[in-house]
């Protein structure tokens, strides 16, 4: 049963992720990406990581993708207004990414994925996650927080650069 749900979700996530790349309309791409995030959140719930699932939705689907959609709607990109790339660009892009794909396959072909053993299935619950973050990993966590703050202040400074000085 669990395996069946996992496989359904995995196939769906791959399909929607492909639709993100393949759809012509950028707004459709963003919407497919949101659906992909939902399916990934469902995978997190399958792993009993409810907190991660909901935070994933709040941050990605609820905040970041809204900003993406914002920008795309304001630009109003269409097939007619979008600059058409020449076929030389398309061919070179296909060759480059194809080579990267080959390299990745070559690098990963012989390797085996190390199983972590059976981790504690309760670790994704918010109480345990909080204890781990604020006891075992408190220093990296705080440093990440400072990094985010610096990035935020930096973004605000970049955003209002015409007012500075």
């Amino acid at each position: 049963m669990t395996l069946a749900i996992f496989i359904t979700l995995a196939v769906l996530s791959v399909i929607t992720a492909l639709l993100v790349v393949l759809s012509k309309n950028p707004v459709h791409s963003v919407l497919y990406l949101i659906v992909t995030f939902f399916i990934i959140a469902a995978q997190y719930i399958m792993l009993n990581a409810q907190f991660l699932a909901v935070v994933h939705l709040i941050v990605y689907a609820g905040a970041i993708m809204v900003l993406f959609l914002f920008v795309l709607m304001l630009l109003n990109l269409n097939e007619d207004t979008e600059p058409q790339k020449s076929s030389a660009w398309k061919i070179s892009a296909a060759i480059t990414s194809g080579m990267l794909f080959l390299t990745l396959i070559g690098a990963l072909k012989g390797s085996t994925i190390a199983l972590l053993g059976a981790p504690n299935p309760q670790v994704g619950l918010v109480r345990n996650l909080g204890a781990v973050l604020f006891k075992d990993f408190v220093v990296p966590f705080e440093i990440a927080g400072i990094l985010f703050l610096a990035a935020m202040v930096g973004a605000v400074m970049v955003g209002k650069r015409d007012l500075a000085m």
């Binding site: 949101i34 907190f51 909901v54 935070v55 609820g62 959609l69």
Partner: peptide, 19 residues
């Protein structure tokens, strides 16, 4: 056990219909 976060999650998704 994350009821409040669930609510915040769906509140943040509310913009999509309008947008």
């Amino acid at each position: 056990n994350i009821g409040i976060l669930y609510i915040m999650g769906f509140v943040s998704l509310g913009v999509y219909g309008i947008m």
